[in-house]
Design a protein around this nucleic acid. Sequence first.
DNA 1: AACCCCACCTGACGGC
DNA 2: TGCCGTCAGGTGGGGT
Length: 324
Amino acid sequence: MPELPEVEVVRRGLAQWVRGRTITKVEVLDERSIRRHVLGAEDLRGNLEGARVVDAVRRGKFLWLPLQEDGQNNANDGGAPHLALMVHLGMSGQLLIEDAEAPDEKHLKVRLTLSPGTDTGGNVAPAELRFVDQRIFGGMFLADLVPTADGHPGGLAETPLPLVPVEASHIARDPLDPAFSFDAFYQRLRARKTGIKRALLDQGLISGIGNIYADEALWAAKLHFARPTDTLRRKDALALVDECRDVMNRALDAGGTSFDSLYVNVNGASGYFARSLNAYGREGEPCPRCAALGLDTRIRRDSFMNRSSYTCPVCQRRPRNGRW
DNA sequence: AACCCCACCTGACGGC
DNA sequence: TGCCGTCAGGTGGGGT
């Protein structure tokens, strides 16, 4: 399931293959994949065709391509893009760079044809950028780029404010972002009256973390998902954020996590990180940390927030009576 | 503010 | 065989 590392892998692929190329043709094969573009497929097509992809940008799990529009005069506004193609992969979205001759994928939803291009190594780039999505939780739409703070009141005062799609302006910075402010995060975390996993999954508080990496980071930090946020000491929170960074960086190094064929990165290769997960999806299997101590402790699965949470009952003790 | 449920989707899988 | 319920889960919206 695409979380931050998977989306970052896709972003890097896009930056390599798509940056600087012009969108010459847009085919929407399933309107449901652009349902957030309320003006519809024709409007999307009219805006995208002739636009040049300036960059590939990510915040948390949101990804966007800032666009230089057809005929946009660089002198008027300094050339800064004010429109972007937003992409969210949802649960099963893929962005594939493919030759036009490649057969259509079963769940191909949107096809963008691009002007000829090469990557930085001079290799001829495939002609198409395809959005494939089985479950249709993801999608793409046009967004206005607006100067925006980062969901961290009291965070870094950035000048000038970064340009972010309106629809992502409520998304906090992610822990791999150089401008992520731990102090601002911790201040807001302590003010919450909720459990730590709920907070980790709140993209407005800290972004990029989904169910998988939340469970992995909590296991690594030896914290139970129900631990009240207002009982976390600064060093506990710092260690947890470090574990979030660590698990996501390791996934990034491995090219993203993959559990089945649903998730494929931008060039069509699956990641290999799933095998090194310690807790997620491992119900009934030994806790690796306990096993190293000679203990036979089994990972348990609990239903929490209408999804599964995996914990070690020994390493991650549940808070009593909601207090710690 | 916190927290709940729902909708949006497809496909795999288990039970009968 | 096949039907039906459950599960996977990111995001946004609405209600309490």
